[in-house]
């Protein structure tokens, strides 16, 4: 388990970018944390590390956004609007989770039972005592 203390959105971006540079095909990353914690900032950093050149915007409304300009195809999910894991069928998620690209899932706790074995768990937490821009990022590798 890795704990990273971020003091700015750039910190988070750089940290995620490093993970993006090292990501291997088939990687699935679960991103959890409250609204405004920085899940999308993390995703943008990760995408940039992968070499994605298109602008990465929030997929809250679209649920899935796909980017093909990087080293690997990036599937960027935001499952906030998913009420029931069954609704994930609408997205064709299995091809993404079990394919050769990499997948990021914001609000992944909503579809926990669908996450494949070996999913990397990234938790982002605020700590207001440490300032408005402080985030604790915890990375847990479940696959070993």
């Amino acid at each position: 388990m890795i704990v990273f203390e971020s003091h700015s959105d750039e910190d988070t971006f750089r940290f995620a970018s490093k993970m993006g540079r090292e990501a291997v095909p088939g990687t699935v990353i679960s991103l959890t944390g409250d609204l405004g914690c920085g899940k999308t900032v993390f995703s943008k950093g990760f995408a940039s590390g992968l070499g994605v050149t298109e602008p990465v915007s929030s997929p809250t409304f679209t649920i899935l956004q796909q980017y093909e300009s990087g080293r690997l195809v990036l599937y960027h999910f935001d499952v906030y609007r998913i009420g029931d894991p069954e609704e994930m069928e609408e997205t064709g998620y299995e091809d993404c989770f079990y394919g050769n690209g990499v997948t990021l899932v914001e609000w992944a706790e909503r579809i926990r039972e669908l996450l494949p074995e070996g999913t990397i768990l990234v938790r982002i937490e605020k700590d207001l005592e440490k300032g408005m821009d402080y985030r604790r990022i915890t990375v847990e590798n479940t696959g070993g």
């Binding site: 609204l35 405004g36 999308t40 943008k44 602008p55 915007s57 929030s58 809250t60 409304f61």
Partner: peptide, 18 residues
Amino acid sequence: GRTMDDAAGEAFDKVARA
């Protein structure tokens, strides 16, 4: 031009919730 992160309507939804 386009949004670099949240869409305008999305910002409305999120702030309304908050």
